[in-house]
Design a protein around this nucleic acid. Structure first.
Lengths: 193, 193
DNA sequence: GTCTATAAACGGATAGAC
DNA sequence: GTCTATCCGTTTATAGAC
């Protein structure tokens, strides 16, 4: 597979890049974007600033790459769960997969938040809610129900609810996020939303 | 009223502080915490960096003060709306007041987000959801209903839903946030949640 | 009360050796 | 591929004049 550098990568180069994405995700998640300097990234990876900049053209490019990798992992996991469920159960599967995946990856959550607020503030919100809205519409269809509520608002509330549940379980590992996810599922299944 | 500086403030000093809180809120909301230097704050206020640091001991203290002012304005407005409503209607009043207040103050929203992620990452989430949980419990009591769902999770989902609605209306002023708020209200009134 | 001037450190990024 | 060395801009904060 060709890479972003326009040629094939050696194995060691590939390994370095993966390592840099790892340490960047960890540092940005734990200390924030602003507090994560190239120097700290280099130190954590065991090389120098210049060494880091050989693999990625800039700090921003590196952080964006780390962000993209975290995001693609999420959409892959959730997508698989949704596909495994039938259309009628897709919304429930989505909620459970999102909460389940993110709750187990606190650093991924913080990485996403940090990247959204510090490097990609213009992330298109529609990309997220419209996917959920489609799931709800398909589920209604599969169950031969006529929806009463606005799909966009329903999808937004579901997304916000998921975020709040995940965020809470990050701060309090004792919190039963799975039960909270079921609460959200029950609301969706009962028609509102 | 005694001030944080331990003595009474002159009128001009009070005015300067208020002006600095204003410009700081504006700059942090528009450009983010990291991109808001003391130099830019000073320039916007028409004084110098050293002048700013006479009024506030550090950049962080200034931003925290601006954050606190925005927050207290929010809790005052929402608190008044909740108090004006009866206990039975308090949850609905809370949702409407939150969405209404924040939708009209995009910069306050961004200021709060920026401060939460960059200067006060350890904000106690319980302070927010427990207040909402209390409102729901009191409303159930006033309506002689027995709640079935976990109050904490219900409060979290409501809060997350409000955040998502407000955030969406920030990015798309055409979006009918008031209607979305009514959707959330109807969910609460119908028992779940 | 606000300024000038400056300290002292840190940031990202580049050039070129090896 | 990674390093050393360095540049240059920017940052917060302080000292002391006015």
């Amino acid at each position: 597979m060709p890479s972003a550098r326009g040629r094939n990568l050696t194995f060691t180069e590939e390994a370095r890049r993966a390592q840099l994405l790892d340490v960047t995700t960890e540092l940005v998640a734990d200390h924030g974007y602003a507090a994560t300097s190239l120097g700290r990234i280099a130190e954590s990876a065991g090389i120098t600033k210049a060494g880091v900049l050989y693999h990625f053209p800039s700090k921003q490019a590196l952080v964006e790459a780390a962000h993209a990798r975290v995001l693609s992992e999420l959409v892959e996991a959730v997508g698989a769960a949704v596909d495994a469920a039938g259309p009628a159960d897709a919304p429930a599967a989505y909620i459970r997969a999102m909460v389940g995946h993110l709750r187990e990856r606190p650093r991924h959550v913080r990485m996403i938040v940090e990247a959204m607020t510090s490097v990609a503030p213009l992330t298109d919100s529609k990309a997220r809610w419209s996917a959920v809205a489609d799931l709800i519409a398909a589920a209604r269809d599969a169950r031969r129900l006529t929806g009463e509520v606005d799909l966009r608002s329903a999808a937004l509330v579901i997304g916000g609810g998921i975020d709040a549940i995940v965020s809470e379980s990050l701060g309090d590992p004792e919190y039963d996020a799975a039960a909270a996810a079921e609460l959200l599922v029950s609301v969706v299944e009962r028609g509102l939303l």
